[in-house]
Computed example of a mutant assay.
Amino acid sequence: MTTAPERARDDVSLRESIPPVRQWAKTFVVGLFMGTADGVPGVSGGTIALIAGVYERLIAAITAVTPGRFVDGVRALTPLDGGVSLDRAAAVLEEVDGWFLIALIGGVATAVVLVGQAVEWADEHYPVLMFGLFFGLIGASAVILLREVAIRTLPEAVAAVAGVAVAFVASGYSEALLSGSGFLVIFVAGAIAVSAMILPGLSGSLLLVILGQYTFMYDRLGAFVDAVGALLTGGPLSRVTGPGVDVVTFICGGLVGLFTIARVIRKALDVNREVTYAFLVALVLGALRAPITTLSDPVEYPSVVWNTATIQAFAGAAVVGAVFVFVLDWYAVDIDLDAV
């Protein structure tokens, strides 16, 4: 399933379009790795897609999804246009490499839920170690990306300075200004974070940290998963609706971002790759402030006091995170931005 279909067929049947289970499983596992990477700041799911050899296919599939094809798929599944036709729906899926996207997104979603449970637990019991780990992941990612970007012209330098400034300032104020501020903020956060998934080196979770939405959204996701589990054992539906609305709002924003903001970023890369990447990479560097600022919030983390023991624990976890990213980079592939 990591190989794209040669072409879409109008006469394809549903049975013919469904790939073998082994291909499904392979793509699902790639999605698991991508989701795990995107679940922590500093590691990019796009990088994992590049390593796994599905990056170009992912971009092609995303750009193949258009409003017209979406409407065609909906019509095929409703009685409004000649009756329900699973074969016509299958033909649309084949045009957008839909089975590949379904398996990949399924793996990503599964991993995000599992990572969310781990993040929620670590945030409650070991916040200093968790954010120290994130600091190391972000810092090492910045070093690797800076190695691939050469600042040669004034526009590139201006873009880099702007990227650092935007991330640095946003990291200092977003937690107080945006955290839990309503559906619009959640929707925009989803759009921005998910659109970053297609860019090697830029982590969607990192952008959530900058926006002050990282721990908030994982708390809501954890509450939603717990409420659904309780509902299946006879719990009240009212527990599901609150966090469920937040999760659905984030997903809707993510879908909009994936098919709009992601296209804008791709267009910017086509127009001026060097300037665009200088800005995006600089965002990672400026975001180093985010873990420290978040952890220093007396409202969210009243028990955290910056003393010698805290600094040592934070620094030790940061080293572990940095080593992990450097090892991944050493044994995987160098990020070739020119090939993106």
Rank of each mutant, 00 (worst) to 15 (best):
L208Y: 01
F131Q: 09
S205E: 03
E124P: 00
Y214A: 08
E300K: 15
I102H: 04
S44D: 03
L269C: 01
P19N: 10
G204A: 02
A339K: 11
V96F: 06
V327E: 05
V228T: 09
P302D: 02
V161F: 12
G254F: 06
L129W: 11
N272V: 07
A165L: 15
V188H: 01
L14H: 07
A309G: 00
R22L: 11
T241A: 14
T215E: 10
S181K: 15
E175V: 10
G107C: 09
T276K: 01
V54N: 07
E6N: 04
I210M: 13
E120V: 13
L337W: 09
A176R: 15
W121Y: 13
F314Y: 15
P302R: 05
V247M: 10
G244A: 11
G253D: 04
T153L: 06
A317Q: 10
G68F: 08
E175G: 14
V247I: 08
V65H: 10
V74K: 05
S296P: 06
Q213F: 05
A317C: 12
A37K: 07
A49C: 04
D334Q: 12
M217F: 15
A142T: 10
A122D: 02
W306H: 11
P302Q: 06
V158I: 15
L58Q: 12
V327K: 08
S171C: 01
T63I: 08
Y214D: 04
R69Y: 07
Y301W: 06
E156R: 01
D11R: 12
A4G: 11
R9C: 03
R15S: 14
F100G: 07
F324L: 15
L283V: 13
D123F: 05
R69N: 13
L114M: 13
V143R: 11
I186Q: 08
D329W: 14
E300W: 03
G182S: 02
V281K: 03
L93C: 13
A318W: 07
A90N: 09
L184Y: 05
A64E: 00
T310A: 15
V209P: 01
T36M: 10
S85G: 09
D97V: 02
D87Y: 02
P243A: 09
L285E: 04
G254E: 00
A315I: 08
A313D: 14
G116H: 13
G82T: 06
N272E: 12
L178E: 03
T110P: 11
W121Q: 08
Y214C: 04
I102G: 05
A157Y: 08
V119K: 02
V71Y: 13
V12M: 12
P67T: 03
D97F: 04
G244D: 08
I102Y: 01
R57G: 01
A162H: 03
I144R: 13
V29Y: 04
V320K: 00
A315Y: 03
V161D: 09
F134E: 09
V96W: 05
T63N: 15
A167W: 02
D338E: 15
L178Y: 02
V284G: 07
G31H: 10
R75F: 07
G316E: 05
L207A: 12
T260P: 04
V30F: 12
D87N: 14
L77F: 05
L221D: 03
G106W: 10
V29S: 05
A89Y: 15
K26H: 13
R7M: 13
G83C: 07
A37E: 11
V164P: 01
D338Y: 09
G212N: 10
I261S: 02
P79Q: 01
V256M: 02
S181M: 12
R7V: 14
T215L: 10
